[in-house]
Design a protein around this nucleic acid. Structure first.
Length: 494
RNA sequence: GCCCCCAUAGUCUAGUGGCCCAGGACGUCACCCUUUCAAGGUGAAGAUCGCGGGUUCGAAUCCCGCUGGGGGUACCA
């Protein structure tokens, strides 16, 4: 029989979830969905010091936003509940395994205090030792010595008794199943249980992975160096280790280091705030370290699930490339219908106070009318308010020279605008087609270049030199407001 | 310092011994379309496949060394 595929994403709630974390979650999720396995979400909050209160809420929201759902985990439950380590610790789940390790001589109680540890480290440094690898003196203590120390009520940690010699090896799916070998002499006796009695990551995650029957551990490559400890621990506990796959980190844009929560603008919530589509982010992130073939990039969720394979994940780290993401977001926005874009930009327009909250039916209809003018110009939905601003607010000309097109001056520009006003005022049909016809006729008669006339009118009605197509803009703005703005422009020129 | 991982254009990647004097995408530039900006179309520049040695009739692809980058080195995860 084959063991069922079960993977997990196990973040620690120490702050917002950044896109690197989402990418790791995504690969796990894709792996599970591809093979029809289970994706488990587990919160690893064994670090009491770094715990951030709202982090879990943010984390769940980030995953849900991009479309990652979990089969077992917080707010969902499952056969291995609870899925929060502090709760599991409270239930006493970990302690029995520590006792087992102690009893079998695979771990020992260490009474060395933090201060002593510091001193030992400093001493080793002073002696010019190449590196400090802690091996507690208690490794070889007799039961009597241990009992004596305990009788004194000394606080202790439980450390793994790592072999002094030999080699620890494991394979990694991302590295083509390559064997990674580490000399035990390069390892040290890691802490398994803190003096507070709280298990450390290495112990807790491993017990949970075993209990939750995780078949594949897919995690960031920063875990490669500690995997030998995990291998040793599995053996000490008499358990079979899962299959490991370490996915590369996402590096900062300049390549200097991995993405950091503090220095980089990569919090997942920042992307929905700026108007990124979850499907675009999903597609982009799937391509950070994984590819399908030599030319396919735009793929639906279903296609990515079908095509995903962990063997095709790159071992080398990728750099964060916001330009590529933005381009992809534009592609996804252009695929949306006008109604969909309307719905999605409404919140941004409300935030900019261009429309009211809740939006009125009239406003919604007007926005829907405007969307075609900016649809293909949007790369982030958050750009919409700026692009549409002049449809909702009056324009002004702090710099009247903006009104004057190339190769023209104040009098000729004013004259051109006056001529346009004269032609447009009597119009009874304010449609895009009629507007174009009328203004082109004016050009033919006046001898002006299209760019000159259109440019002057554009600035007059929008207050800017770059704007959506002129006739559609005039049509959407309406006859009265268009003419008022053109007259105002003429006035500022005079 | 020590240990581990990685290495194809500025960036993301295809490539697993001959189909590759290296394909796709982002970015850049040019032209077309065009009232501006986009979008779209066409095209261009950009990689001695990090460097040096091997193995082989033949290497981006296999091996070794070096260099560079990244990660780890906590009673953090």
């Amino acid at each position: 029989m084959t063991t069922p595929i079960r993977v997990r994403f196990a973040p620690s709630p120490t702050g917002f979830l950044h896109i690197g974390g989402v990418r790791t979650a995504l690969f796990n999720w894709l792996f599970a969905r591809h093979y029809g396995g289970s994706f488990i979400l587990r919160i690893e909050d064994t670090d009491e010091k770094r715990y951030v209160a709202d982090a879990v809420t943010d984390l769940l929201a980030s995953l849900r936003w991009i479309g990652i759902d979990w089969d077992e985990g917080p707010e969902k439950g499952g056969p291995h509940a609870p899925y929060v380590q502090s709760e599991r610790h409270a239930l006493g789940i970990y302690r029995q395994y520590v006792d087992q390790l102690l009893a079998h001589g695979h771990a020992y109680k260490s009474f060395v205090s933090n201060e002593e540890l510091e001193r030992m480290r400093a001493e080793a440094m002073a002696r010019g030792l190449k590196s400090f690898r802690f091996r507690g003196p208690e490794r070889d203590w007799t039961p009597e010595q241990v009992a004596a120390a305990e009788a004194q009520g000394l606080p202790y940690t439980v450390r793994l008794k790592v072999p002094l010699e030999g080699v620890t090896s494991f394979q990694d799916l991302v590295r083509g199943g390559e064997q990674i070998n580490v000399n035990n002499a390069d390892l040290y006796d890691i802490v398994l249980l803190k003096s507070s009695g709280m298990p450390v990551y290495h112990l807790a995650h491993l017990i949970d992975d075993h209990l939750m029957q995780i078949s594949h551990v897919i995690r960031g490559e920063e875990w490669v160096p500690s995997t030998p400890y995990h291998v040793l621990l599995y053996a000490a506990l008499g358990w079979t280790a899962p299959i490991f796959a370490h996915v590369p980190n996402i590096l900062r844009q300049d390549g200097r280091g991995k993405l950091s929560k503090r220095k980089d603008d990569v919090a997942t919530n920042r992307f929905w705030e700026r108007g990124y589509l979850p499907e675009a982010m999903f597609n982009y992130l799937a391509l950070q370290g994984w590819s399908y073939d030599d030319h396919t990039e735009i793929m639906t969720r279903t296609e990515i699930i079908e095509r995903f394979s962990i063997e095709r994940v790159q071992p080398s780290p990728a750099r964060w490339n916001p330009e590529k993401l933005q381009d992809m977001n534009g592609i996804y926005i252009r695929k949306l219908t006008v109604t969909e874009v309307t719905e999605r930009i409404l919140p941004f327009l409300q935030q900019a106070e261009l429309v009211s909250t809740p939006v009125t039916p009239t406003e919604r209809a007007y926005v829907e009318q405007l969307v075609p003018l900016i649809h293909e110009r949007l790369e982030e939905l958050g750009e919409a308010p700026d692009l549409l601003d002049f449809f909702f607010r009056d324009v002004s000309f702090p710099d009247p020279t903006l009104l004057i097109p190339k190769k023209m001056d104040t009098p000729t520009t004013a004259a051109a605008l006056r001529a346009a006003i004269e032609r447009l005022t009597p119009l009874t049909d304010w449609s895009e087609a009629t507007l174009e016809q009328t203004l082109r006729a004016l050009i033919a008669e006046s001898g002006l270049k299209p760019g000159q006339l259109f440019s002057a009118i554009r600035v007059a009605i929008t207050g800017r030199t770059v704007a959506p197509p002129l006739f559609a803009t005039l049509a959407a703005l309406g006859q009265q407001r268009s003419l008022e703005r053109m007259r105002a422009a003429v006035a500022t020129l005079e």
